[in-house]
Design a protein around this nucleic acid. Sequence first.
DNA 1: CCAGATTGACCGACCGGTCGGTCTGAAACT
DNA 2: AGTTTCAGACCGACCGGTCGGTCAATCTGG
Lengths: 204, 204
Amino acid sequence: MEERISIKDDPAFEKKKGRHEEIIKAAGKIFSSKGFHRARVEEIAKEAGIGKGTVYEYFKSKRHLFVEVIKYFTTKFLKEFKEAARNGKDYREKLENALGLLIDILHESSGFFELLVRDHWEMDERLYQWMVKVRGEASKVIEDILVEGIKAGKIKDINPRIPAMMLIESSRLALFSGDLGDEKMSPGGLKRAIIDVVLNGILR
Amino acid sequence: MEERISIKDDPAFEKKKGRHEEIIKAAGKIFSSKGFHRARVEEIAKEAGIGKGTVYEYFKSKRHLFVEVIKYFTTKFLKEFKEAARNGKDYREKLENALGLLIDILHESSGFFELLVRDHWEMDERLYQWMVKVRGEASKVIEDILVEGIKAGKIKDINPRIPAMMLIESSRLALFSGDLGDEKMSPGGLKRAIIDVVLNGILR
DNA sequence: CCAGATTGACCGACCGGTCGGTCTGAAACT
DNA sequence: AGTTTCAGACCGACCGGTCGGTCAATCTGG
């Protein structure tokens, strides 16, 4: 978008920005409920309350729109994730907050996360690399928390990468909680159970 | 003795059965490398060395074929998984064998597993339920191993479901091993690391 | 020589993307 | 203030390519 005189006061500018985000949100809704291929551009436009042609005023193609949607939501997620990991008096509380957020998101809007593990793999290399980066950053957040525990002498002096990624992957159980009919699979219970296993192990 | 039966000797029958499986295998190859939507029926037929029309002699539609592919491979996987879980002198060895198999499959042919986590979710309810069942059975295999450890007094007397599912979900790390550039992420190293964390925990 | 298997050219539904045209509202001018 | 102009946001009917699925023609082997 090009610079212009008195942009901030230009209502058209505000309008344009608003639409951009509106479309991404609408697209996020449709993409995450039906997947890339079944999502219809016209339906996305309808959801955003605009005409189909207008979508193409903002995004070059359906695929470009999809990439922007992924970037938008993953960026938002990482921000919240880092924030959650910052709030807590010690490594344990930070761990609970961060994983709690991840599990809640997976639990309540599994569609969003499915979006992340699906479709993008068959997109171009650039999006794939973006997702590698997102996974890496999320892992880093947990690793840093574990390192804090190591420095405090609470955790064994190990490479925290694998346990960190295990915690993240295990959070995926929240996606299936509906199918399991297990009251222990409530977000809170799941969070505690996962952390408990990774911290204490299951050996007697 | 008599020639009454002899259906099994009917070449047409054998041929039909053979084709059926050939097509499924060819479809598995194409579907797992490109996903459902990008896979072309004609390409599957070509891979199977037959004409496109013949595919429709064996399967009602592309979607029906896809369902059969998923059922075929998951059934085969579960059989091997149970087999691996049976071979081992104690719970620990059984655990290593079963997880080792899963991790190897994920590592060497991530396409196959991607097939399981992708696409099917946007198919019909029946396939979704099938996948729930497959996950449940795989979890059960690991749970049974853990129960053996519990009975032997090696493992805490806990509900083995969550650790079992954590072990399975954590195996997914094998999918990313390429992106991590970590020598610890070799299938063998990963298997040991995952089991070690779940069994012993990471607390000092 | 026929019954069933096989085939691939063909059909048409479908949908991403385009484009000619409308509408809005802000500046420019009187 | 009223009028004109104009940029560009917005629109949706339409176009063109793409495949899933069909079926008449062909093949095959018994």
